[in-house]
């Protein structure tokens, strides 16, 4: 599985492009890192790939996942997973039901689905917490539950938007290792936005700087 951007440009409603045309290829199990000054549109780029671009932004160029052009597809049909700074678990569902919401449709039967969720909980060190209120989990537990929910949907690519920045330093390294290990295990491409040099080093993939390379325009 490969995620490929070809000359991608995003404009805000007929305005100038947010960043120069950007291309990159992330192969199976490869974690590419996007850096750049804040406000340049890193998160907007992830939105565009995931299909969550808000009204008022226009996308140019092509986004390919396994050779399939994603542009024009609704978010739910893209099979692109999303990890946020906060874990964004659904507050009205229990931890287990959050995972069950994510679990792909092709796992059929009540027992089988329950088993898949329980296994994912166990893999995340959350065994036995199916019925827990997500609001009562610790930060690390929440992040792991969110990752499991994303992975259970069997995404073909993963987008990470500063996924570890809200965790404290000790937890950050652990969560980073946990996340990257799962991405490599699944052999899916991933794209990560981060400000943390340690993240980029651990990812060990291509690094793309969105900042205009030659003349620094006075962007406020």
């Amino acid at each position: 599985m490969t995620l490929e951007l070809r000359d991608v440009v995003i404009r805000a409603q007929g305005g100038a492009p947010l960043f120069p045309p950007t291309s990159l290829v992330a192969g199976p199990g490869e974690i590419a890192t996007i850096i750049g000054p804040s406000g340049i549109g890193k998160s907007t780029l992830l939105d565009a790939i995931g299909g969550h671009l808000t009204q008022g932004f226009a996308l140019e160029g092509r986004i390919l996942l396994d050779g399939r052009d994603l542009c024009g597809l609704p978010a739910e049909a893209r099979r692109v997973g999303l990890m946020f700074q906060d874990s964004v678990l659904f507050p009205h569902l229990s931890v287990g039901d959050n995972l069950a919401f994510g679990l792909a449709r092709n796992v059929r039967g009540r027992a089988a689905r329950r088993r898949a969720v329980d296994e994912a909980l166990e893999a995340a060190g959350l065994a036995g917490l199916y019925d827990r209120d997500p609001a009562t989990l610790s930060g690390g537990q929440r992040s792991r539950a969110a990752l499991m929910r994303t992975l259970l949907a069997e995404p073909h690519a993963l987008l990470l938007d500063e996924p570890f920045s809200k965790l404290d330093v000790a937890l950050r390294a652990e969560m980073r290792a946990f996340t990257f290990e799962h991405i490599r295990q699944r052999n899916i491409p991933a794209l990560m936005v981060t400000h943390d040099v340690a993240d980029a080093e651990a990812a060990a993939g291509p690094v793309i700087d969105l900042a205009p390379s030659q003349v620094q325009t006075s962007r406020k």
Partner: peptide, 21 residues
């Protein structure tokens, strides 16, 4: 929180499931 809806969308939930679930 709009991110809840994005999370649901990225998990494969279409507009009706996002509304009702």
């Amino acid at each position: 929180d709009r991110r809840l809806l994005r999370a649901a969308g990225s998990l494969g939930a279409g507009p009706w499931r996002r509304l009702f679930a």
